[in-house]
C-alpha cells in the first residue's frame, strides 16, 4: 500500500469523526474528510489484510471496495432500522484507523 494513500486515509479517519462531532464551521474540511473516508478508508484498511502484495494498492480497487463496503453498511442501517449516520461515521473511522495506522507503523 502506498504510503501517501495511507497517510491520506489515516488523516481522513481522524478528521471525519472530529469534524462531525464538532459540527461547527469546518464544513469544507468535514466534507473532504468524510469523502476521503468513504472512498479510501475501508479499502485502505482491509485490502492489505487480505494480501501482502503491493499490487493491492491500485486506486481503482481501493475506491470501489471502499464505496461498496460503505453502501452495504448503509443498507444494513436501513434494513436493521438503525439509521444513525453520524454515529456510523464515527464507527467507520474507528474501525478503519487501526488497520491504516498498523500499516504505516510497519513501514516505519
Amino acid at each position: 500500500m502506498r504510503r501517501t494513500l495511507l497517510i491520506v486515509a489515516a488523516g481522513a479517519c481522524l478528521l471525519a469523526p472530529l469534524t462531525t462531532l464538532a459540527d461547527v464551521v469546518l464544513d469544507p474540511l468535514r466534507v473532504g474528510a468524510t469523502l476521503i473516508l468513504f472512498c479510501l478508508g475501508p479499502g485502505a484498511s482491509a485490502l492489505p489484510l487480505l494480501t501482502p502484495r503491493r499490487a493491492s494498492a491500485e486506486l481503482g480497487l481501493v475506491v470501489a471496495t471502499s464505496l461498496a463496503a460503505v453502501t452495504v453498511l448503509a443498507m444494513l442501517m436501513l434494513l436493521l432500522g438503525a439509521w444513525a449516520p453520524g454515529v456510523m461515521t464515527l464507527v467507520l473511522a474507528a474501525a478503519c484507523l487501526p488497520g491504516v495506522v498498523a500499516q504505516l507503523r510497519a513501514r516505519g
Binding site: 460503505v70 442501517m77 449516520p85 461515521t89
Partner: peptide, 27 residues
C-alpha cells in the same frame, strides 16, 4: 431513515441513495 418499496422503483434499489443519504447527513 428508511425506504418504502411501494413509492417508486428507486426505493426498490436504494443502495446508492442510502450511501448518499449517509454522506449528506454526516457532512
Amino acid at each position: 431513515g428508511g425506504f418504502d418499496r411501494s413509492i417508486d422503483i428507486y426505493q426498490n434499489w436504494p443502495g446508492f441513495f442510502a450511501l448518499n443519504a449517509w454522506f449528506s447527513k454526516s457532512t
